Simulated scan of single mutants.
Amino acid sequence: MDSKDVSADLAHVLYTKEEIQAKIEELAARIDADYVGRDILVVGVLKGAVMVMADLVRALHSHVTMDWMAVSSYGSGTQSSGVVRILKDLDTDLLGKDVLIVEDIIDSGLTLSWLLANLHSRGPASVEICTLLRKPEAAKVEIDVKYVGMEIPNEFVVGYGLDFDEKYRNLDFIGTLAPHIYE
């Protein structure tokens, strides 16, 4: 699926496939430099982080293991509910491990704040966060995010794993969803 297939649904393309891949490679280089000689447990937050995590771990030169967690604070709307549910927990014991959480986007920070507290309670050696996108204007809680790809305006974006009602995840770019789609 490309931009021609959904042009009526988008206000504009925010980042192209090439721009995203360049940012992923830049993030991977920073992570490799910070984790020299250490194994990383990369934890993807489903479903949105699938694309980011797949491309990120392929760009890394460090040894990694991967696991997935699904948490939800979204219904079918565009705003965080603030209520977090674990839909799929990790299969890996975190005790003593260096954990890197991979997110597609951080907006309010409510879900990620809860997730951080949950993972820290499991005894990891370290927990850091890598996100492709962050919306600083949407933040409701302050979260220390070590690896941020791009900061974006407080608009509703889709593509490259990001969805609206489970649609648009398979776009290979990131675009701003036209308001007539979600209003």
Rank of each mutant, 00 (worst) to 15 (best):
D2L: 12
S3N: 11
K4Q: 15
D5H: 14
A8N: 13
D9S: 14
L10D: 03
A11G: 01
H12P: 03
V13E: 11
V13P: 08
L14V: 13
Y15H: 14
Y15G: 05
E18Y: 03
E19T: 01
E19S: 06
Q21M: 14
A22H: 12
I24R: 00
I24P: 03
I24K: 04
E25P: 02
E26V: 09
L27Q: 02
L27S: 02
L27C: 04
I31A: 04
D32M: 09
D32W: 11
G37H: 10
G37D: 12
I40L: 15
L41R: 08
V42P: 04
L46F: 09
A49P: 03
A49Y: 03
V50N: 07
V50Q: 08
V50H: 09
V50F: 15
M51Y: 11
M51N: 10
M53W: 10
A54S: 14
D55W: 03
D55R: 06
R58C: 11
H61G: 12
H63K: 15
V64C: 15
D67R: 07
W68Y: 14
M69G: 01
A70P: 03
A70N: 11
V71R: 00
S73I: 03
G75V: 00
Q79D: 13
S80G: 13
S80I: 04
S81Q: 08
V84Q: 02
L87N: 14
L87W: 00
L87M: 14
K88E: 12
D89E: 08
D91V: 09
L95N: 12
K97E: 04
K97P: 02
D98R: 10
V99C: 05
V99D: 02
V99K: 01
E103I: 00
L110D: 03
T111H: 06
T111K: 06
S113F: 05
W114Y: 10
W114H: 08
L115Q: 01
N118I: 00
N118D: 14
H120E: 14
S121M: 10
R122A: 07
G123R: 11
A125N: 13
V127A: 01
V127D: 02
K135A: 13
A139F: 00
E142M: 13
V145W: 04
K146C: 06
V148Y: 01
G149R: 01
E151C: 11
I152C: 07
P153L: 11
F156R: 04
V157M: 08
G159V: 07
G161P: 09
G161S: 09
L162D: 06
L162W: 06
F164V: 06
F164D: 07
E166P: 10
Y168C: 10
R169M: 12
R169D: 12
N170I: 04
F173T: 05
I174H: 09
G175K: 09
I181P: 01
E183S: 15
E183A: 15
